[in-house]
Design a protein around this nucleic acid. Structure first.
Lengths: 143, 143
DNA sequence: TAGACTGTGGGGAAAAGTGGGGGATAAATA
DNA sequence: TATTTATCCCCCACTTTTCCCCACAGTCTA
């Protein structure tokens, strides 16, 4: 399971170090793709394949299904760690997520997310106040 | 069950001693994460896993679910006690909870909470007056 | 009063993250 | 076809952080 928050730098060559704690789970090869809030998702191969299977079961006659599949699949890239534990982020994804030098890598259960630091802080502070309400709404019964 | 209030120091390396009374319940390994009122939650592994199970049942296509999962999981870290009974607090959590040297560790039933001392005092005094009203709203019948 | 336990501080080794050089491969141009 | 240009990896070296251990002081107990 992916948990935690790490602040790493994207270097001039478009590389970023994957926190060592995550490498054991991810293995050497995995998938990165566009995420929903203008961040980048990082999935282990198994998990990615599982999601793809789900997507393929959606009827391609549905407009939304086509759009989401396109969004999700077109951004995807199979990547490998170099010997320093870094990955290359393809430039379309760097642009999509607006990554500058300072990035945040967070674990959210089944995947990692890579955010530009400013964007992440903004997102977090924007939903900080609502978090209490959200929590109340999510669980009807006692946890 | 966690009860009580302890005042401990966060040292320069970001470590804080867990009160010895709590160590028996927590064991050697447990989880700390972002709490809702800008404090830090400390959960035994079992309790944390239970919450995660609940979260995982929520679809990642739901916006609130993504936000809360991100909030909760990204703040989480699996920690272990060192031989002196201390844990390392990751710097993102120190920032989030605004911890300076003086901290308060309180037991709140199923979890511990770690607060900056000033923030804790302020929170307590601010809602002391309302406590009577708050209590009334909680239960309709007799406890 | 001696011993055990708890909380606090700090030193040092090991690991993790960062930046940059250089060679191989592939694409582009003359 | 030959030369140039760009891109991608791999490796090395430096810095920073993390982790583990030891030592000390205060408190409680026997």
């Amino acid at each position: 399971m992916f948990i935690g928050e790490f602040h790493h730098n994207l270097d001039e060559k478009g590389r970023i170090a994957i926190p060592s704690k995550y490498r054991e789970i991810l293995g050497d090869a995995f998938v990165i793709t566009r995420g929903i809030e203008h961040c980048i998702y990082v999935y282990p191969n198994d998990t990615f394949n599982h999601i793809v299977t789900k997507l393929e079961s959606l009827p391609f006659t549905k407009k939304d299904a086509r759009a989401f599949t396109r969004f999700f699949m077109s951004g995807a890239t199979a990547v490998e760690l170099d010997k320093q534990g870094r990955v290359n982020i393809p430039s379309p994804l760097i642009n999509y997520a607006n990554l500058s030098k300072k990035c945040v890598i967070v674990g959210t259960g089944d995947r990692l997310e890579i955010w530009d630091e400013d964007a992440f802080n903004e997102f977090m502070s924007s939903c900080n106040d609502e978090m209490s309400d959200i929590a109340e709404g999510l669980f009807e019964e006692k946890i």
